[in-house]
Write a protein that binds this DNA or RNA. Sequence first.
DNA 1: GTCCAGGTCGCGC
DNA 2: GCGCGACATGGA
Length: 302
Amino acid sequence: MALLRFPVPRNFAFEPTVRSHGWYLLEPFRWDRENGTLHRVETFGRSVFELRIRHRGDALEIASDHELGPTHQRELQRKLARMFQLDLDIDEFARLSSGTETHRWVALTGFGRMLCGANRFEDAVKIIATTNTTWKQTMRMVELLVFELGARSKGGAPAFPSPSRIASASVEQLRERCRLGYRATTIHALARGVAEGAIDLDALHDPRADAAGQLLAWRTLPGIGPYGAAHLMALDGRHDFIAVDTEFRRFVRERYHRGRAVADATMLRRYSRWGRWKYLAYWSELWESAADSLVKYESPSE
DNA sequence: GTCCAGGTCGCGC
DNA sequence: GCGCGACATGGA
């Protein structure tokens, strides 16, 4: 049983990050609320390990079912940095928040980092699985994808499937076995593109690109439109655009317009003063007002 | 049966 | 550029 420690930024808040959005409810994550432990099945080269992630002092403490050598440890550190947005500087957002009555609580809780998958492919697939469906079905689609196609640990726990594993399944199999519906086509196209090298998600991510350019880049992906592109950017720590969906419209309508329908542009204007933190500004409002709305989807404690 | 859920895409104008 | 319908699935 290996036990590893990786330092985190001073303003890092573990549970608010884990529960920042629904990702902690999607396989191969599993949240143990009682023990404050995030379970994660992760691939390292050809190996699949079961990790238990906790926050202790100024570090993430990782327990693994298998010893990790130096190479795997470095890979784990990179993956943890992405999963918890450890390299994201959220000081400016905290500063802006502390100057606003409605967001003063943000700096106190350390809210501001979004939980991510270990790589952009996983996040893109999961985002596609959230479109035009219910959260319950999203959880089901991802669960089936992982259990049907994911490589397994020694203990039999499946990791998130690689692009080639998904690409090697047929569209029909993805539809029938993973219940992806019409998304089977786009997820298969994405997986195939990444597996064959025609799509390079890490190259598509360009920190030097302006926000609009980056948004357009993500929109070239199959199944990714304005909503998905903005979401994908947020998971890279770029909150320039709000992912407009039925949830955003419902929230702004109820909170600011007494339930009356208003144009998207009107809703978006409300957040324009937040500059490159618009999505996070909206998301923190939603999060604060409905922090417990996802609890019913958490699996019963063991 | 009908509508719709944290949308996207292709088509016609 | 902009409106519109189709698209799988499962629950209300």
